[in-house]
Design a protein around this nucleic acid. Structure first.
Lengths: 115, 115
DNA sequence: ACTATATGCATAAGAAACTGATGTATGAAA
DNA sequence: TTTCATACATCAGTTTCTTATGCATATAGT
């Protein structure tokens, strides 16, 4: 996607949600999953992803587990209990944000949406 | 809203869209309109709004017109021709961003959405 | 008289979250 | 041997916000 600056603020939510669905993932896998799910339109850069993962870990929302695969090191991330709670919180924030966005942007809107 | 950091990147779009619907607005009016449309959940702060307006004006997307109302100065903003084009561009960016967000976040999603 | 609130503009320090470049390392393909 | 893919990471710089502050007018409350 040409202008990706809308990601700001939603990257953490994306990470947490993917980890809720996938149990455990490593960084590179996350970038590939997002690219795949969005047909290449959203590309999570490493410079954004890794600091975000480290921060979530520092906040106690993610735990890590290093693993060796084919002479390559992988750092797997999983949700902690706090992380599992936070997913729902972040998701409802995102949902209400999108609703509010629709209220601002859609002049005559029926209360219909679905994130 | 408690965590407003999702706004990042969408403020310009909001401003442009409101001006497309309202022909001309002044800064304070924009903050009030957004607050009203979102039942107080999104509050555009002045520290975010005014720099954003100035930037859009510097980019040639908005034009201004000072007006005196009740001994108070108002600075009205309107879309320029470039601004009118940019609204559509920004809106389709926003729409595809939300679509992509849904693809990432909603596991089994029907291609149904509406921003 | 004083204070708070509303209207209306604006700037500025600091924080947060990015981009884009760079670095290390392994391995396969061209 | 150069590029690409996999896999981690850091860092300078930029953008975009928050929070505080400032100026100015007017009304309402205490």
């Amino acid at each position: 996607m040409s202008n990706n600056n809308l990601i700001k603020g939603s990257l953490q939510t994306i990470i947490l949600k993917l980890l809720e669905e996938n149990e455990r993932m490593y960084g590179y896998e996350i970038t590939q999953r997002v690219k795949e799910l969005t047909a290449g339109e959203i590309k999570i850069t490493e410079g954004a992803l890794y600091p975000a993962l480290h921060k979530l870990e520092a906040e106690g929302l993610l735990s890590t587990e290093i693993q060796q695969v084919d002479n390559r090191v992988r750092k797997y991330y999983s949700l902690t209990k706090d992380g599992q709670k936070e997913v729902h919180s972040k998701m409802s924030e995102l949902q209400s944000f999108v609703e509010n966005l629709q209220r601002i942007i859609n002049p005559g809107l029926k209360p219909d949406f679905s994130l």
